[in-house]
Amino acid sequence: MMKVQVKARNRAFGFDTGVGESVLYSGLRTGVALPYECATGTCGTCKAKLIEGELDDQWPEAPGRKYLKSDQGEFLMCQCAAKTDLSIEIGNFVSEATPGAVIPAKFTGIVGGSRMLTPDVKAFTVELDRSTEFDAGQFVAVRFPGIGGYRGYSMVNFERRTQTLEFVVKKLPGGGVSEWLFDNEPTGVELEIFGPLGSATFYPGMGKNVLCIAGGSGIAGMMSIFSRGCQENYFADHQGYLFFGVRTANDAFYLDELAAFKAKHPENLHITVALSTEAVTDEVKAAFPGLEFDTGFVHEVAARKMKDHYDNIVAYLAGPPPAVDAAIRTLVLEARLSADSIRYDKFS
């Protein structure tokens, strides 16, 4: 065990860290709310400055390093482990975790089973070594054996306390984990998991109408949000709008599950599948009478259909970074939503 001393703008913290353990994860699991968003090396939010000690950078090519001033000792807490006791500095306010929040922890998980949802989208479940709580909209960092660092995956399911997590992955050419997942049968494989993470969360207590805009596998967290909303009868007196963007009808998945949400609250749920490169066929339309289909990029379709429905809205965004950026731009500039009613975790 080594010690990490953190000097933040408002105060100091200390915590222990293990060999090879990310500085970020060791702080988070001891209840120090260190700054982060992706927790997996891409967003740069967890940057800190090394004052004293030696680091082991486990992913020197991490894309998030482009936000760093390396000549001034800056590093990504999510990717670096301590080789000696550390003294580091964070240019932000840091607090202890809010009372009642679920403190993230390390888990071991076994892949329970997987199924193909489309030719390039796969869903899989993971059985954790013990149960955990998480909030709808959160994700965990997952490390597959022999394939580098952690990747972030949002939970698709929602149960207050559970040992089973459900994920969805899209095949990315050249993506180490996704290629491995598609080329192999992952059932029975043991994974390292850290979480739950992320602040783009939904609580029934917030009393707002819900707008979800998701591209591709970004639908995962939205499924969790709609599951919780439906389980707790939230949509009996709140509106829920969901826009799911894919290229073609063949790329769409979870349509049965989305139709089941709609069937529970036909008046108040409005679910649209946006196809970016084709118009929907009558056949697909007939198969899912509860769902609406539209053509265009998901943020454009959402902008068109949401006009005059932005009252008392909180918006959740997820998907490929360009899609999320376009949706943010639309919500800020056209819908004039206040920034604190737009929730997403940055993955770029």
Binding site: F93, D325, I328, R329, V332, L333, S338, A339, D340, I342, K346
Partner: peptide, 29 residues
């Protein structure tokens, strides 16, 4: 970031400012 002629928004974490005064709005600290 985004600018509509009145409010400036940083695209990274949506901090916003009133351009006539520079005063913080919304999430900006």
């Amino acid at each position: 970031g985004f600018y509509d002629g009145c409010v400036l928004t940083c695209h990274q974490h949506l901090w916003q400012w009133d351009v006539k005064t520079g005063a913080p709005m919304g999430l900006a600290e």
